[in-house]
Amino acid sequence: MITINAILDIFPQLMRGLGVTVTVLLASAVLAYLMAFIAGLCRLSQNVIIRKFTGFYVEVFRGTSLIVQLFWLYYAIPMLFGIQLGSNWWTGVIAIGLNYGAYLSEVVRGSILSVAKGQTEAAVALNMSRFQRMRLIIFPQAVRMMLPEFGNYTIQMLKGTSLVSLIGMTDVLYYGDIMRSTNLAQAPLIYLLVLVFYFILALPLIWLTRKGESISKKGVASG
């Protein structure tokens, strides 16, 4: 009985962080997808400088920790350059978006490269230009292949949003932490509920990933 009461107590508290968690997720996902396509395509560019430059971005953001990147954007950049990245909501979105954008750009690049060579050859035989080949033939197939990985990374991004509680944002984890600090004995239950909370949020994403997998099985010539 006590447990149920406690749950009924804790849950509404966690709900207060829902807005921040979801909006940060959605905005950073949009930014990450955008960066993924820009960087992924740039890495396949014929121009060496563009390729090297995007390679640098990808390796730096993949190769360092997200939480340190977050702190850099939040604490270091304003001090060093006097630039404010807007609110801490924006800081969180930019850090998560750029970080996962770097990972996803490799997915974009890999998918484009794994469309079968025969597809390009058939498109050449139909006298398509480089751009037409990409737009009409390669890209539509590559996108299908990307879907499952995009789903996976979006789920990871959801979990990654919990880091914004460390730069003072009031997300789900933040409210969990607050409650624990006022009621230490409840810590196990509180964190269990936080986990459940994230899991429920992830469910639609898991479902979408499955859906993406079945779509990607059809309509692609790979090899």
């Binding site: 058939a122 398509m128 037409q132």
Partner: peptide, 24 residues
Amino acid sequence: VFQHFNLFPHMTILDNCMAAPIHV
């Protein structure tokens, strides 16, 4: 025409035949 056909798997048969004349 290729040994392994190289049809565009994401398009219908008709679209396979129409893409190039329209776009190219």
